[in-house]
Design a protein around this nucleic acid. Structure first.
Lengths: 187, 187
DNA sequence: AGGCACATGTAAAAGGTTACATGATTGG
DNA sequence: CCAATCATGTAACCTTTTACATGTGCCT
């Protein structure tokens, strides 16, 4: 039921197609509420039927036509009401952590490799977030940016994502060291 | 589909009832794969039918009887196989972040209050994790604990949860400061 | 020639949430 | 006396995932 609000929050940045949203055209929302393309296309249809968004069809010649969605006034109102309601607690689902939890009864080498791969991903995400941050700041200091820009929400969530991935990476390096020492001891 | 593996990982700590699991009797697993009691009772039944766990009924006089579940050998094997498969990427779902993202077009005061309340929760979780950590370490240093204890998995995931909540709290304090400065400027 | 990017969708299956249902005991 | 804890479950509903389906253009 929250997917639609995530979509509306993303549309505050401007028009987007289902495809854009699916790719996480707005990196920040997608990082706290991921969705598959199928989910998005369906939800966007429902939202249009309810008048929360409007679609504008772009005719294309060498590509499939696309529909660009934007928020309607009704959508803005609904989104505003949503922000006023207390949020439910967040949920994390991470298979890797289940594997780490079970590492002592499992395949330690495979778990170690999985942690390592996750760290590569984390690095890539950090780099992406940092590029996005530089783009937003555009040479200004954070203080200046925060006091002058129209919106602060996207910056706040971006920094949350960045902090999360940095922490993740930090933890991973430590966990790898622990696991390596373990396997050295067992050998 | 991963719920069962989370359950099995939790059962590595020893026997537990559905009720125990629902409360997150093992704080660490529950923090990366939450589930409602209903989900657990159903899954435990299915797992027993498949021979992954076994149940032992405890007759009680002043309380409803309970069923204590434990891993079978087949369960252990399945769990081990699971650790050898590459995990899918983790997912976070957090309504609060959607609200923060939309704060500039929403009810800023309500969002601020929501962040504040989340920080209270984060504090509580940090305290809980720290107590759990102290209980595990039991006076020993981390280094000593990691080199001597049979299992390291639960400690690794516990530290991940702790780092996550600390980071969360840190971000929240900063976000509150940003939001307050904003509302002061608008007033 | 093969694979990815673009761009959309349908349908079925699996998984997760919410409401309902029971009922004694303990603590404030 | 009211709320919480213990302890289990069913049923209905909603959400999410996965598989299938289509077709062009661009890059290597």
């Amino acid at each position: 039921m929250s997917l639609r609000y995530a979509v509306m929050a993303a549309l505050l940045e401007g028009e987007a197609s289902g495809y854009d949203l699916a790719k996480g055209f707005d990196a920040s929302v997608a990082n706290f509420w991921m969705a598959t393309p199928q989910q998005l296309y369906k939800e966007l249809d429902k939202m249009r039927a309810e008048g929360l968004v409007q679609a504008r069809v772009i005719q294309q010649e060498r590509r499939p036509n696309k529909r660009l969605f934007s928020l309607t006034e009704a959508g803005r109102r609904v989104l505003r009401d949503f922000t006023a309601v207390p949020p439910r607690p967040g949920a994390i689902r991470d298979e890797l952590m289940i594997k780490v939890q079970a590492v002592d009864a499992g395949d330690a080498e495979a778990v170690r490799a999985a942690v390592e791969e996750r760290m590569v991903w984390a690095q890539a995400k950090i780099a992406r977030y940092e590029r996005l941050r530089a783009r937003l700041l555009n040479g200004r200091s954070e203080e200046e940016y925060l006091s002058r820009s129209e919106r602060v929400g996207p910056y706040l969530t971006l920094m949350r994502g960045l902090a999360f991935e940095r922490e993740n990476h930090h933890w991973g390096e430590w966990a790898l060291a622990v696991l390596e020492q373990r396997s050295a001891a067992t050998t």
